[in-house]
Computed example of a mutant assay.
Amino acid sequence: MLRTARVGAGDEVIVPSYATATTAEAVRDAGALPVFADIDSRSLCLDPASVARAVTARTAAVVAVPLFGHPADLAALQAAVGQGVLLLDPTDGEEEEEGEEREEDIAQRRANAALLDARLTGVTPVTSPGVLHRYHSYVVRVPGNGRPDRDAFARALRARGVRCRVPVQTPVHRLPSFRRELWLPETERAAGECLALPVDAGTSRRELHRLVAACNALGGLLPAVAA
């Protein structure tokens, strides 16, 4: 997409730091400079206000990465940068490429996520109202003192047989190959609080109920660890 748009040497491309390094690497491979912006606390996608602050005379494009299946707010992002900056959506053409089995998987993930939405307590699902979420991951925030409490909570879930993972261990702007002296508060907060729970199509109803029981029993915090 970047090469088709003739983005290259001397250009800047705004990307999220709360993500995998894939997008930043693609920008660099095209010869452009990745510029990191902060995320919205509800969607975990690029925050339009932060993107607007990151725009310079060299900004050629913004890559609106949909985090964990949550779509980015394309209209707000385009309004933030104006018509002179390209807004690239990595999901362009994705729906046409999805077959019947893929749509069934998405429907099952949404059903699993709806069950967790209705029954989980003690953790906060990360989503914006009214969006068509694909739930590549079901991401929640674990309340408390950030990374220590989140990691302790994850260990306790695994001890109870519940699959879970930290979706982004290190923001891209803090990786050695992309290190920038930036303060992106929502990115840092998400990196310390967020946990991904299983909602893939292969997750059984029994596994979902075990997940709910374990999360609710823990209550989102482990007082002994927090102390």
Rank of each mutant, 00 (worst) to 15 (best):
D89H: 03
D29G: 13
R147W: 12
V62H: 04
A24I: 13
S177A: 12
G161C: 08
G220V: 12
P223L: 00
V27G: 07
L88F: 11
G146H: 05
Q78R: 11
A37I: 03
A152L: 11
P167V: 09
G220D: 10
D73I: 10
G8L: 13
R6I: 07
A75P: 14
V55D: 07
A24F: 12
R155C: 05
S204C: 02
Y135E: 05
I106E: 13
E186Q: 06
Q83M: 06
R210T: 14
E103N: 01
R42D: 11
A75E: 15
V212W: 02
L77K: 06
T4C: 04
V172R: 03
P167H: 13
S43C: 01
P223K: 01
E103A: 14
E100M: 10
T59N: 10
R189A: 13
G219C: 03
R160T: 07
V123S: 01
A26S: 15
V85H: 04
A72Y: 02
P176W: 05
L77F: 11
A80F: 13
A79L: 11
H173E: 11
V140R: 00
T91M: 10
T203P: 00
A196M: 09
F68R: 04
S41V: 15
A57T: 15
G99Y: 13
G84A: 12
W183K: 01
V140L: 03
D92Q: 09
G93Y: 09
F36V: 05
S17K: 00
R163K: 04
A49W: 12
R179Q: 05
R42W: 09
A54C: 12
T121L: 02
G8A: 07
P90R: 09
A159W: 07
A9L: 15
C164Q: 01
P167W: 08
L218W: 02
A5V: 05
R206Y: 12
R205T: 14
A21M: 14
A24V: 09
P129F: 11
D200Q: 05
V51M: 03
A49L: 12
F153S: 04
T4Y: 06
L2A: 10
D92C: 01
V27A: 01
A37W: 07
V199Q: 06
N216I: 13
E100F: 15
F178H: 14
V166W: 00
E97S: 08
L120S: 09
F153K: 00
S17P: 08
A49K: 03
